[in-house]
Amino acid sequence: MNEKVIAVVTAGLTTPSSSRLLADQLADAVRDELSGRGIGTRIELIEVRDHAHELTDNLLTGFPPAKLREVLETVTGADALIVVSPTFSASYSGLFKMFFDVLDDQALAGKPVLLAATGGTERHSLVLEFALRPLFAYLKALPVPTGVYAASTDWGPNAAGLRPRIAQAAGELVSALHHETPTQADPFENPTPFEDLLNS
């Protein structure tokens, strides 16, 4: 059976975290959506917290330690991403941003992304639109139109309102999977001939 790899990047800090809870629900919804279309799913879950030290090391040394390198390769090799950040000081968290800072700025080009965030109050819900969406637009990823924001109340009295948003976003992500991800030219496989460098 045809299988899609969905990398889920969640940057919650506590265990359990509401970001992880949202990430799991989004991943399940995407799996259901894909299976409804006869496609298998492999979910690769990445808790950014587990790599906090390695991310700092990468920023300071300029290269990812071996374990982080594997994780980054999982993300860049996935067919689509689900990303979830807690809202800190009116934006994504610093740790969330660090994960995407150490990726090559072309690494997510053309990749469908489902944007999601959590927060204490629904007053922060536009964080998806003014913080996450521009970040992924810069990275030339393809964020789907519906982002999912979950405030504390969405886990209680408003839970019924959250479910359709999750289903809507999951459907959009799966529809976006038909996009061909452009493959990057490898400058080591095909180096620019020196005469071209001299004449450029």
Binding site: T61, G62, P187, P191, T192, P193, F194, L197
Partner: peptide, 22 residues
């Protein structure tokens, strides 16, 4: 890679600092 290419083009030496990197 452009600098490796440059060294190769001229038949010059190529040095990799090799420290601080895998």
């Amino acid at each position: 890679p452009e600098i490796a290419e440059q060294a190769a083009y001229y038949g010059d030496g190529f040095f990799h600092n090799n420290i601080f990197w895998p």
